[in-house]
């Protein structure tokens, strides 16, 4: 039976009809048309779908839209302000922290959550934090460099 969910996404109040089994990522991509959040796996392991819910990074493929009722959701589309990239996005561009870009939205959202918890992460801490974000292209090296630079830029 369809129900209505309402939440705030990237600062805007939104609502829509969903089934109880609709995942948050489906609501974001299909109902809201915000396709920056990706789906890379069926097993909750890859992190391409990471968004922030009430300020914390979560895998939007492993949460029901209904569970986000009333929540404050931030997706990759909500980071830039007035056409200016967020410092973490800018750092990914500057340090070439991507190749195909599929994992990038999740990487950036995870990285920003890391910096919220740890303002000056070491290389080791960055690598540990990326446990749940899989990249098939870059070998991670430039992602780690980008996140270190992004953390400095966010300070």
């Amino acid at each position: 039976m369809p129900t209505t969910v309402s939440m705030t996404v990237n600062g805007k109040k939104v609502s829509g009809q969903v089934e109880p089994r609709t995942l948050l990522v489906q609501f974001i991509r299909e109902t809201l048309g915000l396709t920056g959040t990706h789906v890379g796996c069926d097993t909750s392991q890859c992190g391409a779908c990471v968004v922030h819910v009430d300020g914390k990074s979560v895998k939007s493929c492993t949460m029901l839209a209904a569970q986000a009722e009333g929540a404050n959701v931030l997706t990759i589309e909500g980071l830039a302000t007035d056409g200016k990239l967020h410092p973490m996005q800018e750092a990914f561009r500057e340090h070439h922290g991507l190749q195909c870009g599929f994992c990038t939205p999740g990487m950036v959202m995870s990285a920003i959550d890391l910096v919220k918890n740890n303002k000056n992460p070491s290389e080791h801490e960055i690598r540990e934090w990326l446990e749940g974000n899989i990249c098939r292209c870059t070998g991670y090296h430039n992602i780690v460099k980008a996140i270190a630079a992004g953390a400095k830029a966010m300070a």
């Binding site: 909750s44 992190g47 990471v50 914390k56 990074s57 979560v58 895998k59 492993t62 949460m63 995870s110 959550d113 890391l114 934090w129 446990e131 749940g132 974000n133």
Partner: peptide
């Protein structure tokens, strides 16, 4: 798990 798993 990983940070996102630990958050939920």
């Amino acid at each position: 798990g990983d940070p996102a798993v630990r958050n939920r």
